[in-house]
Design a protein around this nucleic acid. Structure first.
Lengths: 106, 106
DNA sequence: GAACTAAGAACATCTTAGCCT
DNA sequence: AGGCTAAGATGTTCTTAGTTC
């Protein structure tokens, strides 16, 4: 089987958007996420261009540095992606009101 | 809470929960997601036990069958995971009110 | 029928060694 | 400095062939 259907462009686009929002370089982001400095540039570039997909554990560390939920990186729906980001940045009070609106959450 | 470990137990736990909510077998889910019937049982079992991680494209097809956003499967935060499900199941009107609360640009 | 596993085959990523702007 | 790439080395998943309940 070919990997024609293994399209990780969603993930890599969200990574790029989140990285550029921070102003970090690809290499600096990789190092901050725990990658060895000697390989951080190459690997982060392969991720961001969409050539290779990282292990989930690496996604989690990247998301931490980027201050986004890891689920955001894997979100293929733009409306939901915005919701995930906004909810993550909201305070306790706003979250409680959102919870009321959405009803059965929790 | 964030995932610091090197395993995919978050993903596999959410897959299992979503599959059991549908009542499908591991094999039936794999076939419905497009896996060859001759390998669906083995592969789905390796995913659900957390031994192997699937390609993102397979996650997307599984999420479709399970009627959950693919981001839900990768969400390492239980509170956010519930909100992702609730938002996904909410109607247009409720979503609009949620977005007002969150001040989302989306 | 359903959940599960080992091991070799097959295929992906990772590291090294670079180039280009 | 920052973004990017090829290719062999490395480590992963996938298929086959089963077991167990």
């Amino acid at each position: 089987m070919t990997n024609e259907s293994n399209d990780i462009s969603v993930w890599s686009s969200r990574l790029k958007a989140a990285r550029e929002a921070t102003g970090m370089s690809q290499r600096a982001l990789g190092i901050a996420a725990g990658l060895d400095p000697s390989v951080a540039s190459t690997r982060m570039n392969r991720y961001e261009v969409g050539v290779h997909a990282p292990a989930y554990s690496i996604s989690c560390r990247l998301a931490e540095v980027l201050e986004v939920p890891v689920a955001y990186l894997y979100c293929d729906d733009d409306e939901l992606a915005e919701f995930i980001l906004s909810f993550h940045r909201a305070g306790t009070k706003v979250r409680r009101e959102v919870k009321k609106l959405l009803g059965s959450a929790g």
